[in-house]
């Protein structure tokens, strides 16, 4: 009796699988294909060797630096706030979290545009500071939320035990709270770093000519002025960006796994 049913169930994932092959796997393969094809056709490492031109190297380094700085600033700003929020009473906690999440629902373009006035009024438009401010402003909630989630789940008794055993409040934070919250910190770092390093509008809107990021460069290879368009180089840049991000995510995940294991033991 259940045969027909299990047959229906087993093919119900089929449309999705076809979809995933057509629109996730195949496009990825085309990125690979275009990255190793030279303009006009034919396999080549030309795009790869072109990566070592000063303009690409400096842009990659700049993107990484800005994203790292923005991530560190976010972490420094977010951790204390997450800690404060986790200690609030339940009703106020959920109000604050709602307030924190609201800006996340506002479109990224709008949030970035809304900074243009402020940056002009404060007078640092077009500088690296304004680009990094753009990143921090856009992605700060993504750092606060995961840290807050982890912190609010920490068993109070650990903190009491640490105090009873003679730790000062500061020692308790450094030796108990911080290690227990590391998984939240890691996912916060990933959630800020990945969009920051790959962003393409922030520096166009807030930066000057010397703050071009890797995302802007990729965008101009595909949709820029006709002189800048080069799908093959654009594909190579995207490929490198993707690899870079997967490596950093892998490293972070390993780091957090080990820490978690350590805590359990």
């Amino acid at each position: 009796m259940n045969k027909k049913r299990s047959f229906l169930q087993s093919i119900s994932a089929a449309p999705h699988m076809v979809w995933a092959v057509l629109f996730i796997v195949t496009p990825m393969l085309f990125v690979l294909y275009y990255a190793f094809t030279k303009e006009g056709g034919g396999f080549s490492f030309e795009n790869f060797t072109n990566l070592f031109q000063a303009i690409y190297v400096s842009t990659f380094v700049r993107s990484l630096c800005y994203a790292l700085i923005a991530t560190v600033i976010c972490l420094l700003l977010a951790y204390p706030l997450a800690y404060i929020l986790a200690k609030l009473g339940e009703g106020r906690q959920s109000l604050m979290i709602t307030l924190l999440m609201l800006p996340m629902w506002i479109n990224f373009i709008i949030r970035t545009n809304s900074l243009i006035s402020i940056v002009h009024i404060l007078g640092f438009f077009g500088t690296p500071v304004s680009v990094i401010l753009g990143m921090v402003y856009n992605y700060l909630p993504y750092m606060i939320l995961p840290i807050y989630t982890v912190l609010s789940k920490i068993d109070r008794r650990y903190l009491e035990a640490s105090m009873d055993l003679g730790c000062t409040p500061l020692q308790t934070i450094l030796k108990v709270v911080l290690p227990l919250s590391i998984s939240g910190v890691i996912s916060g770092i990933t959630m800020v770093f990945v969009p920051s390093v790959s962003t393409f509008y922030i520096s166009t809107a807030l930066g000057g000519n010397k703050t071009t990021l890797i995302g802007d460069m990729i965008e101009s290879r595909f949709l820029g002025s006709s002189g800048a368009i080069n799908y093959y180089m654009g594909a190579m840049l995207s490929l490198i960006l993707m690899i870079l991000i997967f490596i950093s995510m892998w490293v972070m995940n390993r780091f957090s796994d080990e820490k978690d294991g350590g805590v359990i033991v």
Binding site: M28, V31, S238
Partner: peptide, 20 residues
């Protein structure tokens, strides 16, 4: 495979579909 677009930066997903 399903989670790839969620993990990938948006710009790479956009580029890959454009290339398709």
């Amino acid at each position: 495979v399903t989670n790839i677009p969620m993990m990938n930066p948006d710009i790479v997903t956009g580029v890959s579909l454009l290339l398709l």
